[in-house]
Amino acid sequence: MAAYPAWDEDGARLIVASLSHLEGATLPILHALQDEFGYVDPQAVPLIAETLNLSLADVHGTISFYHDFRTTPPPPRLVKLCRAEACQAVGCETLVEELAREHGIVVDGPGSEGRGAVESVYCLGNCALGPSALVEGELLGRVDADRIAALCGEPR
């Protein structure tokens, strides 16, 4: 499972500085921070704003616009489950119900301590082999509730 270092201001500053020369650097910086720490800490906002000469509102607005960027540390494992039409056609909604009923996992729910969480996404480009999920950069096809639950691990 992905283990991220705790947020650290100096590390973040280095990342921001190393990418600030790019045209339209905001998204690359946000991605790099999230890759490093697992999320974008609110403390990054002034850092980015200062370096790129943007207002705090601009940076905050950008972060909040995109579904990808988290502002709190991630669960030990994040399973992105496709809920779009081609996966609906092969039962992803039933899978979601089963996860809740049989495994106590609420998709997009608050999650539980120490356990992986499941988040909705809309199409992973695997529409002929659904239901599909993306876990730590690996694409999974023909998944079922048991497999997703196993990826999340047992509740503590």
Binding site: G24, A25, T26, L27, P28, T62, F65, H67, D68, Y122
Partner: peptide, 25 residues
């Protein structure tokens, strides 16, 4: 290569350009 961030609207070309420039799309 630039990565999007999970927003469907970024496929619309002007929204995509806003995103490439670093803004809300």
């Amino acid at each position: 290569v630039r990565l999007g961030a999970g927003a469907y609207i970024c496929g619309e070309e002007t929204s995509l350009l806003e995103s490439l420039e670093g803004h809300r799309a």
